[in-house]
Design a protein around this nucleic acid. Structure first.
Length: 210
DNA sequence: AAAAGGTTCAACCGCTATGAA
DNA sequence: ATTCATAGCGGTTGAACCTTT
Protein backbone atom coordinates (compact mmCIF):
# COMPACT_ATOMS: atom_id res chain seq x y z
CA UNK A 1 0.00 0.00 0.00
CA UNK A 2 2.86 2.31 -0.73
CA UNK A 3 3.96 4.49 -3.58
CA UNK A 4 6.56 3.11 -5.95
CA UNK A 5 9.99 4.60 -5.20
CA UNK A 6 11.50 6.86 -7.85
CA UNK A 7 14.16 9.56 -8.21
CA UNK A 8 12.81 12.98 -9.18
CA UNK A 9 14.48 15.49 -11.52
CA UNK A 10 16.42 17.03 -8.60
CA UNK A 11 17.93 13.69 -7.63
CA UNK A 12 15.66 13.38 -4.60
CA UNK A 13 14.24 9.96 -3.85
CA UNK A 14 10.49 9.77 -3.35
CA UNK A 15 7.91 7.09 -2.66
CA UNK A 16 8.09 4.18 -0.26
CA UNK A 17 10.93 4.01 2.24
CA UNK A 18 13.25 0.99 2.25
CA UNK A 19 14.36 -0.77 5.44
CA UNK A 20 17.86 0.53 4.89
CA UNK A 21 16.63 4.14 4.70
CA UNK A 22 14.55 3.63 7.84
CA UNK A 23 17.58 2.33 9.68
CA UNK A 24 19.75 5.25 8.57
CA UNK A 25 17.17 7.77 9.68
CA UNK A 26 16.44 6.03 12.97
CA UNK A 27 20.11 5.69 13.91
CA UNK A 28 20.85 9.28 12.99
CA UNK A 29 17.93 10.85 14.85
CA UNK A 30 18.44 8.72 17.94
CA UNK A 31 22.07 9.76 18.02
CA UNK A 32 21.93 13.40 17.01
CA UNK A 33 18.30 14.45 17.27
CA UNK A 34 16.73 16.57 14.57
CA UNK A 35 17.71 20.22 15.04
CA UNK A 36 17.43 20.86 11.29
CA UNK A 37 15.34 18.56 9.12
CA UNK A 38 16.46 20.21 5.90
CA UNK A 39 20.12 19.45 6.56
CA UNK A 40 19.50 16.07 8.14
CA UNK A 41 19.33 13.87 5.00
CA UNK A 42 22.70 15.12 3.81
CA UNK A 43 24.42 14.14 7.07
CA UNK A 44 22.42 10.94 7.49
CA UNK A 45 23.36 9.72 4.00
CA UNK A 46 19.82 9.83 2.65
CA UNK A 47 18.67 10.94 -0.80
CA UNK A 48 15.41 12.22 0.66
CA UNK A 49 14.25 15.78 1.26
CA UNK A 50 14.05 16.99 4.86
CA UNK A 51 10.31 17.15 4.76
CA UNK A 52 10.05 13.51 3.79
CA UNK A 53 12.45 12.53 6.60
CA UNK A 54 10.46 14.46 9.16
CA UNK A 55 7.23 12.84 8.03
CA UNK A 56 8.72 9.35 8.10
CA UNK A 57 10.05 9.89 11.61
CA UNK A 58 6.89 11.50 13.01
CA UNK A 59 4.46 9.05 11.46
CA UNK A 60 6.36 5.78 11.49
CA UNK A 61 9.74 5.61 13.19
CA UNK A 62 9.25 7.54 16.45
CA UNK A 63 9.86 5.10 19.30
CA UNK A 64 6.88 6.36 21.34
CA UNK A 65 4.48 5.69 18.49
CA UNK A 66 1.56 3.40 19.27
CA UNK A 67 0.65 1.03 16.44
CA UNK A 68 -2.15 -1.43 15.86
CA UNK A 69 -5.91 -1.26 16.29
CA UNK A 70 -7.63 1.59 18.07
CA UNK A 71 -9.35 0.81 21.35
CA UNK A 72 -12.90 1.80 22.10
CA UNK A 73 -11.60 4.45 24.51
CA UNK A 74 -9.42 5.96 21.79
CA UNK A 75 -12.34 6.05 19.35
CA UNK A 76 -14.51 7.73 21.97
CA UNK A 77 -11.86 10.30 22.64
CA UNK A 78 -11.27 11.06 18.96
CA UNK A 79 -14.97 11.61 18.35
CA UNK A 80 -15.28 13.79 21.43
CA UNK A 81 -12.20 15.85 20.55
CA UNK A 82 -13.17 16.17 16.92
CA UNK A 83 -16.52 17.51 18.05
CA UNK A 84 -14.72 20.08 20.20
CA UNK A 85 -11.70 20.93 18.00
CA UNK A 86 -12.73 20.10 14.43
CA UNK A 87 -10.07 18.85 12.00
CA UNK A 88 -7.15 19.81 14.23
CA UNK A 89 -5.55 16.41 13.91
CA UNK A 90 -2.27 17.24 15.58
CA UNK A 91 -4.08 18.58 18.65
CA UNK A 92 -6.26 15.48 18.76
CA UNK A 93 -3.28 13.15 18.30
CA UNK A 94 -1.42 14.95 21.08
CA UNK A 95 -4.21 14.26 23.56
CA UNK A 96 -4.40 10.62 22.51
CA UNK A 97 -0.72 10.07 23.20
CA UNK A 98 1.29 7.78 20.96
CA UNK A 99 -0.71 8.26 17.77
CA UNK A 100 0.42 10.41 14.85
CA UNK A 101 -1.81 13.11 13.41
CA UNK A 102 -1.73 11.31 10.05
CA UNK A 103 -2.82 8.07 11.69
CA UNK A 104 -5.68 9.73 13.56
CA UNK A 105 -6.78 11.52 10.41
CA UNK A 106 -6.77 8.28 8.40
CA UNK A 107 -8.65 6.46 11.14
CA UNK A 108 -11.27 9.20 11.24
CA UNK A 109 -11.85 9.15 7.49
CA UNK A 110 -11.77 5.36 7.24
CA UNK A 111 -13.83 4.37 10.29
CA UNK A 112 -15.29 7.09 12.47
CA UNK A 113 -16.64 9.77 10.15
CA UNK A 114 -19.19 7.47 8.56
CA UNK A 115 -20.53 6.29 11.89
CA UNK A 116 -20.87 9.74 13.38
CA UNK A 117 -22.59 11.03 10.24
CA UNK A 118 -24.95 8.08 10.24
CA UNK A 119 -25.96 8.59 13.84
CA UNK A 120 -26.38 12.33 13.41
CA UNK A 121 -28.55 11.76 10.35
CA UNK A 122 -30.74 9.29 12.13
CA UNK A 123 -31.00 11.51 15.21
CA UNK A 124 -32.19 14.44 13.11
CA UNK A 125 -34.76 12.25 11.40
CA UNK A 126 -36.15 10.76 14.59
CA UNK A 127 -39.63 11.95 13.71
CA UNK A 128 -39.70 9.95 10.50
CA UNK A 129 -37.62 6.87 10.96
CA UNK A 130 -35.94 5.73 7.76
CA UNK A 131 -36.60 2.15 8.63
CA UNK A 132 -40.23 2.53 7.58
CA UNK A 133 -41.75 1.03 10.68
CA UNK A 134 -43.69 3.82 12.31
CA UNK A 135 -44.74 4.15 15.91
CA UNK A 136 -42.54 1.43 17.24
CA UNK A 137 -41.66 2.02 20.86
CA UNK A 138 -38.47 0.11 21.26
CA UNK A 139 -36.33 0.07 24.37
CA UNK A 140 -32.69 -0.77 24.45
CA UNK A 141 -30.79 -1.85 27.52
CA UNK A 142 -27.30 -0.54 27.50
CA UNK A 143 -24.41 -1.49 29.78
CA UNK A 144 -23.15 1.28 32.04
CA UNK A 145 -19.65 -0.04 31.57
CA UNK A 146 -18.58 0.66 28.02
CA UNK A 147 -14.90 -0.33 27.98
CA UNK A 148 -15.26 -3.59 26.18
CA UNK A 149 -14.32 -4.95 22.80
CA UNK A 150 -17.61 -6.79 22.86
CA UNK A 151 -19.49 -3.52 23.14
CA UNK A 152 -17.41 -2.09 20.37
CA UNK A 153 -18.28 -4.92 18.01
CA UNK A 154 -21.89 -4.58 19.07
CA UNK A 155 -21.84 -0.93 18.14
CA UNK A 156 -20.31 -1.75 14.77
CA UNK A 157 -22.94 -4.41 14.17
CA UNK A 158 -25.74 -2.03 15.04
CA UNK A 159 -24.57 0.73 12.76
CA UNK A 160 -24.09 -1.77 9.94
CA UNK A 161 -27.65 -2.98 10.42
CA UNK A 162 -28.96 0.57 10.38
CA UNK A 163 -26.94 1.28 7.27
CA UNK A 164 -28.45 -1.74 5.56
CA UNK A 165 -31.90 -0.38 6.46
CA UNK A 166 -32.84 -3.45 8.44
CA UNK A 167 -36.21 -3.65 10.11
CA UNK A 168 -36.88 -2.67 13.71
CA UNK A 169 -37.76 -6.27 14.43
CA UNK A 170 -34.29 -7.39 13.36
CA UNK A 171 -32.64 -4.55 15.27
CA UNK A 172 -34.64 -5.25 18.40
CA UNK A 173 -33.71 -8.89 18.30
CA UNK A 174 -30.07 -8.12 17.71
CA UNK A 175 -29.78 -5.53 20.47
CA UNK A 176 -31.72 -7.35 23.12
CA UNK A 177 -29.99 -10.63 22.46
CA UNK A 178 -26.51 -9.23 22.23
CA UNK A 179 -26.70 -6.82 25.13
CA UNK A 180 -28.60 -9.12 27.42
CA UNK A 181 -26.09 -11.88 26.88
CA UNK A 182 -23.24 -9.44 27.36
CA UNK A 183 -24.60 -7.97 30.58
CA UNK A 184 -25.51 -11.41 31.88
CA UNK A 185 -22.13 -12.98 31.17
CA UNK A 186 -20.31 -9.97 32.58
CA UNK A 187 -22.63 -9.46 35.54
CA UNK A 188 -23.07 -5.78 34.67
CA UNK A 189 -25.92 -3.55 35.82
CA UNK A 190 -27.83 -2.13 32.87
CA UNK A 191 -30.04 0.87 32.43
CA UNK A 192 -32.80 1.44 29.90
CA UNK A 193 -33.34 4.32 27.56
CA UNK A 194 -35.72 5.12 24.76
CA UNK A 195 -34.29 4.07 21.39
CA UNK A 196 -36.22 6.83 19.63
CA UNK A 197 -35.72 9.62 22.13
CA UNK A 198 -35.40 13.11 20.65
CA UNK A 199 -33.92 14.63 23.81
CA UNK A 200 -30.43 16.11 23.59
CA UNK A 201 -27.72 13.67 24.59
CA UNK A 202 -24.98 14.26 27.08
CA UNK A 203 -22.87 11.38 26.02
CA UNK A 204 -22.37 10.16 22.46
CA UNK A 205 -21.86 6.59 23.52
CA UNK A 206 -25.06 6.33 25.50
CA UNK A 207 -27.36 8.16 23.15
CA UNK A 208 -29.99 6.26 21.19
CA UNK A 209 -29.43 5.53 17.53
CA UNK A 210 -32.44 7.43 16.18
C1' DA B 1 -10.61 -17.69 -11.51
C1' DA B 2 -10.83 -13.09 -12.93
C1' DA B 3 -12.50 -8.48 -13.05
C1' DA B 4 -14.37 -4.57 -10.73
C1' DG B 5 -15.02 -1.80 -7.02
C1' DG B 6 -13.99 -0.50 -2.29
C1' DT B 7 -10.78 0.20 1.59
C1' DT B 8 -6.64 1.38 3.75
C1' DC B 9 -2.70 3.95 4.85
C1' DA B 10 1.87 5.82 3.67
C1' DA B 11 3.50 9.61 1.34
C1' DC B 12 3.09 13.90 -1.09
C1' DC B 13 1.58 18.78 -1.86
C1' DG B 14 0.49 23.32 -0.80
C1' DC B 15 -0.31 26.42 2.57
C1' DT B 16 0.37 28.84 7.10
C1' DA B 17 2.91 29.89 11.35
C1' DT B 18 7.05 31.00 13.48
C1' DG B 19 11.46 32.77 14.31
C1' DA B 20 15.85 34.62 12.88
C1' DA B 21 18.40 37.94 10.23
C1' DA C 1 8.74 46.21 9.07
C1' DT C 2 10.24 42.93 5.73
C1' DT C 3 12.20 38.85 3.92
C1' DC C 4 13.60 34.27 4.07
C1' DA C 5 14.14 29.56 5.83
C1' DT C 6 12.17 26.01 8.23
C1' DA C 7 8.69 23.36 10.74
C1' DG C 8 4.25 21.87 11.02
C1' DC C 9 -0.49 21.10 9.57
C1' DG C 10 -4.40 19.35 6.95
C1' DG C 11 -6.12 17.86 2.45
C1' DT C 12 -5.32 14.78 -1.20
C1' DT C 13 -3.50 10.96 -3.78
C1' DG C 14 -1.30 6.43 -5.32
C1' DA C 15 -1.20 1.87 -5.09
C1' DA C 16 -1.44 -2.48 -2.54
C1' DC C 17 -4.71 -5.20 -0.45
C1' DC C 18 -9.42 -6.93 0.31
C1' DT C 19 -14.15 -8.04 -0.88
C1' DT C 20 -17.78 -8.74 -3.92
C1' DT C 21 -19.75 -10.11 -8.20
Amino acid sequence: MVRTPFIDTNGIKRGAWSEDEDNKLRVFVERFGHPNWRQLPKYAGLMRCGKSCRLRWMNYLRPDLKKGNYSLEEDQLIIKLHNELGNRWSAIAEKLGGRSDNDVKNHWHAHLKKRVRLINTNSSQSGSCQLNEQNVAATLTYPEVSSSDHLYSLFNGLTDLIEQNQSIAQLSFFTSFEIDSFSWTNNIETESFDLFSTQPFDNFWTKPFF
